[in-house]
Design a protein around this nucleic acid. Structure first.
Length: 555
RNA sequence: GGCCUGUUGGUCAAGCGGCUAAGACGUCGCCCUCUCACGGCGAAAACAUGGGUUCGAUUCCCGUACGGGUCACCA
């Protein structure tokens, strides 16, 4: 068999030699230890939570080492491609502030190792495929799936669909092996008849033999050799994942391949490919999948699952920082300790360690995410929270966006209550929490929701509100203000100190805290609110008096 | 089913042959406190299982059980 002739027959249009292609992709000039990583998603669906894992690990490892992080779109399957998925991918990654040094950008490429969309690299793959055919390491296959299945008397598609796997029969194996025996004459006939063909690798492995392999996360593994003549080039001339991975990551100079552990079983194929092609293998890290609870068992978090779509987090109003922060806690077990020590540093200052990565899949935990988010938002400036909230509300609550965004200084002042310092308030988990929290500051939303406690005489409530109205001086400080409340309390037969009341409750009608509750209901509309003094300072004297009067009139 | 891989409290997770087996979230209790939100203290709660190896196993080895992944002209 003249394999060189065969390769010319199959790829007459490929004139370049592999060496010439190599010349177009020179080795990267990077300092010692710099890692080159990539995110290589396929545009077959919308970004989901799990995608953030490899994205962040790739990004951290590259940038932490002074290396390069690039985006490659693996659009090799036209059938499964989802319209808009690529845009969603690029937009979402930008929304989460995941920055690429090079790669696919909206409408084109940025970088010297492109094209970064695999659909645009057909000739590159074909150059290497041609070489493999010429070297007798790969061969054309004109047999269709249907013919193959008929030959082996199995319906592989049904098996896949029903998850009903059977060991390959000897008939199947023999049928597969026979495909290798195609002759030049047969190829010429097929080509003359215009038949489509695909390229298969001629596997020389023995699955009984194991190759030791070290994964940077999983540690030492045993990989059985590959004996499957898997497809390199599909009949449309576009490669499968395996072949594209080997060619691209070689040419693009990827030093570390970081991907989900679902790729582990394909490792044998990749080892074989790098060997056949004479490429040096990159280092591999297979990271565990994110799981969710389904009934009593863990399941892979898939695209359709509730909470899986990254866009959901945006809609619900989680800050991108919160989501990233949560992912970091899942990725590196010592991240939370570091965060406690460094509450204000950006997450990118964290010394990310491969060693601290979990080998098994974590279960998504909303409670934990919410807690992380609360802390993340609490550490933001009032201005940042304001900007995020208005921006979010514009899409999901336009009326509130208008009201809250009307006076930035005013709204920011509200958000400043209890912000900063050692023990900041943590009222906001998602942007949707802002509205109920701040509504009392806006006349369009203000309403007296809670009733006055029933164990008090309405007359006392009215007297307290009246006394406060008549003495309220917004110019005094918080302490003086509260002293004023105590005076009112005593004048109405309430204890000025809670302790005094508790010591002898029968001696008083109530205590100063009760007086403040009356006020709180009248001015804030409910029994729970941030610091009342601050509220009054912000809403202003006139509004305080108006609200008091409205209550005094109805009591 | 074959192959690969994993198993520490409800969840995440330290641990790397000798510990009263960290910590975080959640739950519960107490304290602080003019409400709320913080904050502080405390409680309940775990090494899947059976064999080895060893003076000694959560840690090393083998089996079992139970998870997970994968087995396409999908990635």
């Amino acid at each position: 068999m003249d394999t060189v002739k065969l390769s010319e027959l199959l790829f007459p249009h490929i004139k370049k030699l592999p060496a010439e292609v190599e010349a177009d992709f020179p080795a990267r000039n990077l300092p010692e230890g710099a890692k080159v990583t990539r995110l290589a998603p396929s545009p077959t669906g919308f970004m989901h939570f799990g995608t953030l894992f490899p994205a962040l690990v790739n990004e951290r490892l590259a940038h932490q080492s002074g290396g390069v992080f690039f985006l490659r779109i693996e659009d090799t399957d036209a059938k499964r491609e989802v319209k808009g998925a690529e845009k969603d991918l690029i937009d979402t990654l930008a929304y989460y502030h995941i920055h690429f040094d090079e790669g696919a950008v909206m409408g084109g490429d940025n970088g010297a190792y492109g094209p970064y969309r695999q659909s645009h690299r057909a000739e590159i793959y074909q150059t290497f495929a041609k070489q493999l055919v010429a070297e007798g390491k790969a061969y054309p296959c004109f047999t269709t799936d249907e013919e193959l299945e008929a030959l082996a008397q199995v319906d592989k598609k049904a098996e896949i669909k029903n998850k009903d796997w059977h060991a390959d029969t000897t008939e199947q194996k023999e049928a597969m092996l026979k495909l290798r025996d195609i002759t030049i004459e047969e190829v010429e006939d097929h080509l003359a008849a215009g038949h489509a063909f695909l390229i298969r690798i001629k596997a020389d492995g023995d699955p009984a033999k194991k190759t030791p392999f070290t994964d940077l996360i999983k540690g030492k593994l045993e990989v059985p050799e590959n004996d499957e003549d898997f497809v390199l080039l599909k009949s449309d001339g576009i490669p499968t994942y395996h072949f594209a991975h080997a060619v691209d990551d070689h040419l693009m100079g990827t030093t570390h391949v970081i991907r989900g552990e679902e790729w582990l079983p394909s490792l044998a194929k990749h080892i074989m490919l790098f060997r056949y092609l004479g490429f040096k293998m990159p280092k591999y890290m297979h990271i565990a999948q994110l799981m969710k609870m389904e009934g009593n068992s863990k399941k892979k978090l898939s695209k359709r699952d509730n909470g899986a779509a990254l866009s959901d987090y945006r809609v619900t109003g989680y800050a991108p920082e919160s989501v990233i922060e949560y992912v970091m806690t899942l990725l590196n077990s010592n991240y939370e300790d570091w965060r406690r020590m460094n509450p204000t540093l950006p997450y990118s200052d964290f010394p990310f360690s491969i060693k601290k990565m979990s080998t098994s899949g974590a279960l998504f935990d909303f409670d934990k995410l919410n807690d992380v988010s609360k802390n993340t938002v609490a550490a933001m400036s009032a201005k940042t929270v304001y900007d995020y909230t208005v921006d979010w509300a514009k899409s999901y609550d336009p009326e509130f966006a208008e009201v809250f965004g009307r006076d930035e200084a005013y709204s920011t002042r509200i958000l400043s209550i209890g912000r900063g310092g050692k023990k900041p308030r943590k009222d906001i988990t998602v942007w949707g929490d802002v509205k109920p929290y701040v509504s009392l500051f806006f006349d369009e939303y203000f309403a007296v929701i809670d009733a006055y406690p029933e164990n008090f005489d309405k007359a006392d409530v009215k007297a307290a509100l009246t006394a406060f109205r008549d003495t309220y001086d917004p110019s005094v400080d918080n302490n003086a203000w509260f002293e004023g409340l105590k005076v009112i309390a005593e004048s109405l037969g309430f204890a000025a100190e809670v302790k005094a009341y508790k010591a002898s409750p029968e001696a008083y009608k109530g205590h100063v805290g009760d007086i403040s509750t009356f006020l709180r209901i009248a001015v804030a509309g409910k029994t729970t609110s941030p610091d009342l003094y601050e509220i009054m300072q912000i809403i202003g004297y006139d509004r305080v008096i108006a609200r008091l009067n409205a209550q005094i009139d109805t009591l």
